[in-house]
Simulated assay, not measured.
Amino acid sequence: MNRLTALAATVALAAGSLALTTPTQAAPAKAQAYKVTAKANIEVAVAKEDTVKVKGRVTPKAAGEKVVLQQRVGNKKSWKSTGNAKIKKNGTYVLKDKPSTQGPREYRVLKPASKGLQKGYSKALPVEVYKWEKLVYRLSGPRVNVEPAGVLIGAEYFGQSLATTTSGTPSSVEYTLGRKCTDLRATYALTDSSATGSSGAVTVTADGAVLATHPLAVGTVIADEVLDVSDVFRLKVDLTTSATPAAVAAVATPEVLCTR
């Protein structure tokens, strides 16, 4: 073996020996994160009426530390913190929210990082929120002989109502709900301006199907009737009144429960 060949073999042997003796560095271990479970008490809520309660557990327990309630409304991508609560000794918690606006939303719970543990999130909890809104605030469709007005019925004032304008003339009004509402709530009656002995009638239809019909007379009040308008696209109210004696028919303070 010549001197160059011998030198090359010696260098290769030394390099192989170094490779065998150099320790391999392990990848850094990923810090453990908090585990958060969550469950909402309801999936459908009415704004300003219902309270959404989110309950769950944090592991490890982290007693006395805080969890944060977050929500994302509609199509928004960002989450907003809207409340917090302390974790109990057994690791459980209760968070509450009373939504004030309608529309679909999601809730989740955040446990911030602490004591060497990374933050943890619960799964997202969908809740659909509905809200009562005055029907007269919505843009109406065809309207014949009916106008928004305040009316007196039994000496009680009802604002944001609908009333007929010309006695003895067929009257109607239509509203598009777009299948986004679930209930219609209203009072039906002849107003106090109607003559004694006068009469009338009201019929409520949804996409051509009759939901309710009532004869009306002075002193007859159909109070706070609630009708199911789930999956209704177009709502129509027909009113008739006698010309002599003259009558004024009213749909008093009608409201619809809608998600948007």
Results as ranks from 00 to 15, higher is better:
R179C: 05
R179W: 05
R179M: 13
K180G: 01
K180S: 08
C181N: 00
C181H: 03
C181Y: 00
T182H: 08
T182G: 06
D183Q: 15
D183G: 05
L184E: 05
R185Y: 01
R185Q: 10
R185A: 06
R185C: 03
A186T: 11
T187H: 03
Y188L: 08
Y188F: 15
Y188N: 02
Y188S: 01
Y188H: 07
Y188G: 00
A189D: 03
A189K: 03
A189C: 01
A189T: 04
A189G: 00
A189I: 06
L190G: 06
L190R: 05
T191Q: 06
T191M: 06
D192G: 12
D192I: 01
D192W: 11
D192H: 09
D192P: 10
D192C: 12
S193K: 12
S194M: 07
S194Y: 04
A195G: 01
G197E: 13
G197W: 09
S198C: 13
S198E: 14
S198W: 14
S199V: 12
S199C: 12
S199T: 15
S199M: 13
G200F: 09
A201Y: 14
A201D: 15
V202H: 02
V202I: 13
V202N: 01
V202F: 00
T203Y: 00
T203V: 08
T203L: 03
T203C: 01
V204D: 04
V204S: 01
V204T: 02
V204I: 12
V204R: 03
T205E: 00
A206K: 04
A206Y: 00
A206M: 02
D207Y: 04
D207V: 05
G208P: 11
G208Y: 08
G208N: 15
G208K: 10
A209H: 11
A209K: 12
A209G: 05
A209V: 12
V210C: 01
V210A: 03
L211S: 05
L211E: 03
L211Y: 05
A212P: 02
A212H: 07
A212R: 11
T213F: 02
T213N: 09
T213V: 06
H214D: 15
P215E: 15
P215N: 12
P215W: 07
P215F: 07
P215K: 11
L216I: 14
L216C: 14
L216H: 11
L216G: 10
A217H: 15
V218E: 11
V218Y: 08
V218T: 13
V218H: 06
G219T: 13
G219Y: 13
T220N: 13
T220Q: 14
V221Y: 09
V221Q: 11
V221D: 08
V221S: 10
V221I: 13
I222Y: 09
I222G: 07
I222C: 03
A223V: 06
D224Q: 15
D224S: 15
E225G: 03
E225A: 04
V226S: 10
L227Y: 08
L227K: 10
D228K: 04
D228N: 13
V229H: 00
V229I: 14
V229G: 02
V229A: 00
